[in-house]
Amino acid sequence: MNQFAQKVQLGRMSMWSANRDRKSNPDYLPTALVSDIYSGVEQENQAFAQQLQKNLTGKIAESAKLVTASDITKDELQKPDDPATSPYPIWSKEGVYLAQTKIVWRHNVYEAKWWTKGDAPDSPILRAEEPPWQLLGPVLPGEKPLPQLTLPEETYPKWAEETIYKAGQRVMFEGIAYEAKWWNKNENPEVALTNFETSAWKALSQEEIKTILEEK
Score class of each variant (00 low, 15 high):
2 N>A: 08
5 A>P: 06
8 V>K: 09
10 L>K: 02
13 M>K: 11
13 M>Y: 09
15 M>R: 08
17 S>N: 11
22 R>D: 03
30 P>R: 05
39 S>P: 04
41 V>Q: 13
50 Q>K: 15
51 Q>H: 14
55 N>L: 14
57 T>E: 14
58 G>S: 15
61 A>Y: 04
72 I>T: 10
73 T>W: 03
77 L>P: 01
79 K>G: 03
81 D>H: 01
88 Y>S: 00
88 Y>N: 01
89 P>M: 03
96 V>Q: 13
99 A>G: 08
99 A>C: 08
99 A>S: 09
101 T>I: 05
104 V>H: 00
105 W>F: 14
106 R>W: 03
112 A>E: 01
114 W>C: 11
116 T>A: 13
118 G>S: 07
118 G>C: 11
119 D>C: 13
120 A>H: 11
128 A>L: 12
131 P>Q: 02
138 P>I: 00
145 P>Y: 01
145 P>S: 02
148 Q>N: 06
150 T>W: 01
152 P>M: 05
168 G>I: 08
172 M>Q: 03
173 F>V: 06
173 F>P: 07
179 E>Y: 04
183 W>M: 12
184 N>F: 04
186 N>I: 07
190 E>N: 11
197 E>Q: 13
200 A>Q: 05
205 S>K: 01
206 Q>I: 06
207 E>K: 15
208 E>R: 08
209 I>Y: 00
210 K>V: 04
211 T>R: 10
